[in-house]
């Protein structure tokens, strides 16, 4: 059933999604929407429910296991009759290339296999493939070689090309930078951005890699099946005290006692240990409070090596947000235990 409330540009709509397997409540009341051409990053530690949400969106989970209003390219995966259309409208790039590629065949044959499943014309498919291969810088001399002879990065890019071969409206990518060495991770992300800009494909990335937020228009943070945040990475960072301004301070013999001492300073919002002897401090009225904080440190006879100021990145925001949630949960658990202790 078409939803009249959503715009024509809404590619994915999720409202009050709950996923339950037996006694396990995997996803709790998740809602968000994705507009055409956006890149969405879904971040969370293992078990957060990222993959489960993607599986609902890609028709892999039966309706009996989930509740809520879900539309993918305007169609609901709750109806089996819609599955074929939804799967025609979406592309999928799995985490492992071996799930997406026949290693014993060459890239062109791989393309032909997947395009045949969409009923595409073979010649047109080859033209599209060549275009994608060129955007993704897959060397021409590898097009007719077996996939197993390609490098890890080339396989990754070929896998992306196959995900996009049928011009999907939404491309789902599962951990696109996992297993790629650090130097290539940024290449992969920049290729995704390039594809998004050139083809205007909506992209939905699920990842542990917080660097992926660099190319995301919106980021979703999940923890234990709950959607904590869904906004642009910049808005999320701006929501931090002093719009994410941090003081990075290195202190001699940094230990838990010293951190507790620093936390006593009145304007301090957050103290994060980011290295052996380095902390990052977030506080209200950063500009006013920073000199006062330094004075406080000297008064407490703490030997400061260095101090610099910076703006928090998405990684830091994620760390703070998850930590907040954990603290909230710990407080809740403690109060529950205390209540149980008080009760006769």
């Amino acid at each position: 059933m078409e939803n009249p409330d959503i715009s024509n540009n809404t590619m994915v709509l999720v409202e009050n999604l709950d996923v339950v397997f037996g006694n396990k409540h995997i996803v709790h009341d998740v809602s968000f929407s994705v507009e055409e051409g956006e890149i969405i990053g879904m971040f969370g530690i293992s078990g957060a429910g990222k993959t489960t949400i993607i599986r609902v969106l890609t028709c892999q989970i039966e309706k009996k296991n989930w509740n809520g209003n879900v539309l993918v390219t305007g169609l609901s995966p709750s109806k089996r009759g819609n599955h074929s259309k939804i799967l025609s409208n979406i592309g999928y790039v799995p985490q492992l290339e071996l799930l997406n590629l026949y290693f014993e065949l060459d890239p062109i044959v791989n393309v032909e296999i997947f395009t045949s499943t969409y009923g595409m014309d073979k010649k047109k498919a080859i033209i599209t493939a060549e275009k994608l291969f060129n955007i993704l810088d897959i060397p021409k001399d590898t097009w007719k070689k077996r996939v197993k002879r390609m490098s890890g990065g080339e396989k990754k890019r070929l896998s992306m090309a196959i995900g996009l071969i049928h011009h999907p409206k939404v491309l789902f990518l599962d951990e696109p930078t996992t297993g790629v060495d650090a130097s290539k991770r940024y290449d992969i992300l920049s290729y995704l951005k390039k594809l998004n800009q050139q083809l205007n494909t909506t992209m939905f990335i699920i990842t542990h890699d917080l660097e992926a937020a660099l190319i995301c228009d919106k980021s979703a943070i999940l923890r234990e099946g709950k959607l904590l945040e869904f906004d642009t990475p910049q808005n999320l960072i701006n929501s931090l005290p002093s719009r994410g301004l941090v003081a990075r301070i290195s202190i001699e013999n940094l230990n838990q006692e010293i951190i507790k001492t620093i936390q006593k300073y009145p304007s301090i919002e957050k103290v994060l240990r980011v290295g052996n002897e380095t902390i990052e401090v977030l506080m209200e009225d950063f500009e006013d409070n920073l000199p006062k904080l330094m004075k406080f440190l000297f008064e407490n006879e703490l030997k400061v090596y260095s101090m610099s100021r910076d703006v928090a990145n998405f990684r830091r925001y994620f760390q703070i947000r998850i930590q907040e949630e954990e603290e909230k949960e710990n407080r809740k658990n403690r109060s529950e235990l205390m209540n149980e202790g008080d009760s006769p």
Binding site: S84, P94, L98, L99, N100, L101, Y102, T117, Y118
Partner: peptide, 11 residues
């Protein structure tokens, strides 16, 4: 292995 991925196409 790619059978799982093929099932995410209309086939």
């Amino acid at each position: 292995k790619p059978i799982a991925r093929l099932l995410l196409t209309p086939v």
